[in-house]
Design a protein around this nucleic acid. Structure first.
Length: 83
DNA sequence: AATGAGCGC
């Protein structure tokens, strides 16, 4: 309904930054936000993130085109968020 | 400093 279409990105390297992920997905469509999920207590990244696209089609293309894509040596898991 | 499947203050 509302205009945020979140994509789950798993299997990311622990040193990945939100900027790097935004760059990697920027060709897909307009990104409104990137959030790397960190452990609440230690603050360390948990190795996955959410990318919020402005349009639903972008989110779907992200899944189709980027699931399994190599990112800094690791195949990303990309799926629509909120299973 | 470290970890490796996972769906988030």
């Amino acid at each position: 309904m509302s205009g945020i279409f979140s994509v789950y990105v798993g299997n990311a390297p622990f040193q990945t930054t939100e900027e790097e992920l935004g760059n990697f997905f920027s060709s897909i469509g307009q990104i409104n936000n990137v959030r790397i999920v960190c452990d609440r207590e230690t603050g360390r990244p948990r190795g996955f993130a959410f990318i919020e696209f402005a349009e639903e089609g972008s989110a779907q293309r992200a899944v189709e085109q980027m699931n399994g894509a190599e990112f800094n040596g690791r195949p990303l898991r990309v799926n629509l968020a909120n299973k």
